[in-house]
Amino acid sequence: MKRQIPLFITFFVGTLLIFSVFIPPMETLGENFTLFFDIIAVFAFFLGAGNLVRVHVSKLRKRKADWGFSIVTLIGFGFMLFVGLLKIGNPGGIAADVTAPGSWFQEMFNYVINPLQSTMYALLAFFVASASYRAFRAKNREATILLMAAFVILLGRTPLGMMLTAWIPDSLSIFQIPNMAVWIMNSFNLAGQRAILIGISLGVVAMSLRLILGVERTYLGGDDSG
């Protein structure tokens, strides 16, 4: 029984939503269920937050490695929760948007989250370089193709590409590197993306059906767990 009910719920909800697309009175069902999902996800925050706090408190208690930094996490978490839920310093009071300019919540976002976020993002500039160095090596035919495509596009994005090939006459201008780069983006790149997208859609269809029909049920756990 413990196992049958969840399987039935998945089957029922999944089938209902698929058919709702074709039935006008049920049109808004999908939207509502998405909203339902969001609401459940907020309840799940209790589990996540509880877990976060528990992990760091136990690190602190047991004086595990780096326990000092757990204090930083706990204070940051507590403080942000405090200013966010109570809308501290919000010029519009309780009715205003939580991220209203001037509120402490927004200031914390601007001066703590934002610099951290954008610097983590900016690390990509470095990793793009180290990945190119290591990965773009002509080890075999596939890798060589990968390497050449990347190189032509990189060259085409700098003035170098034009300078190197500016002497090519207009009647052969496809061989000018910037033009070639654009052409690759519009032909091979388009074709590859499309094949991948069509494959993905079929993968999703089959995956959804496996879940709805209960062929895939690992998420339900074992039969006898209490």
């Binding site: 990965a135 990968l146 993905i200 993968g203 496996r210």
Partner: peptide
């Protein structure tokens, strides 16, 4: 994101293969 995984990982399941993998 696939290009980056192809470049930096040992094996990459491309698109549909991810969904086929569990089966």
């Amino acid at each position: 994101q696939l290009p980056f995984f192809i470049a930096a990982c040992d094996f990459t399941l491309i698109g549909e293969e991810l969904f086929a993998a569990s089966a």
